[in-house]
Simulated scan of single mutants.
Amino acid sequence: MAFENPSREEIKKILEEVGTIAVVGLSDKPDRTSYMVAGAMQSRGYRIIPVNPMAAGQQILGETCYASLRDIPEPVDMVNVFRRSEFCAEVAQEAAEVNARTLWLQLGVFSDEAAEIARQHEMNIIMDRCIKVEEAILRPVRS
């Protein structure tokens, strides 16, 4: 069976229920897409927890960065992944181990293996979508 993302209504519900997002591959460089997307999500009220072994212990977006999902000392609702597709199965396994409810692979990132791991652990799985774009469309700021 071919993979299909949840409907827009289901994605909206997922975003409404999320409080904490661990961002795997979050760069400490402000000109990187991961930094800009995570910063935008943070400005919309989501708690962002950086995950990047090269920046572990440093502050990114005002939050302590961790080497892996397993190192985060608090619950995580969603894991947002800015890694190449071939690394996503390992991230999906870690996401399952920390009981994340949703695994979100950013635009251009696909992994059938990660999707299968997510399904086996009853996680929501979204692939090849930008969380910032989806959030802006589905939860627009009202003035």
Rank of each mutant, 00 (worst) to 15 (best):
R83N: 06
P6F: 05
P53T: 04
I72F: 01
V51K: 00
S68G: 09
W104M: 02
E74Q: 12
R101F: 10
T33G: 10
K132P: 09
T102K: 02
I60R: 01
A56L: 04
M1Q: 13
S27A: 06
L105W: 03
A40G: 15
V24Y: 01
V133C: 08
T33P: 10
P50V: 02
R44D: 11
E113H: 09
D31L: 15
M123Q: 07
A114W: 00
Y46F: 15
R47M: 13
P6I: 04
A114V: 03
V51T: 01
L61D: 01
V18Q: 05
M36N: 13
K12W: 09
A95D: 02
L107D: 12
L61Q: 06
E94K: 00
I137E: 15
L107P: 08
A22I: 04
P75I: 08
P6S: 05
C88S: 05
Q42T: 08
S85N: 04
E94S: 08
V98F: 05
E116T: 13
R8C: 10
Q106P: 01
N80E: 14
S68M: 05
P53F: 04
Q93V: 13
D128H: 07
M78V: 05
G108V: 01
I14N: 04
I21V: 12
F82S: 01
M1P: 13
L107C: 11
G19H: 14
W104Y: 04
L105Y: 00
E97K: 11
D71Y: 06
M127L: 07
A56Y: 05
T102S: 09
Q93W: 11
I131Q: 10
V109G: 00
I125C: 13
I131V: 14
E10W: 10
F3C: 08
E90V: 12
V79A: 05
F87M: 13
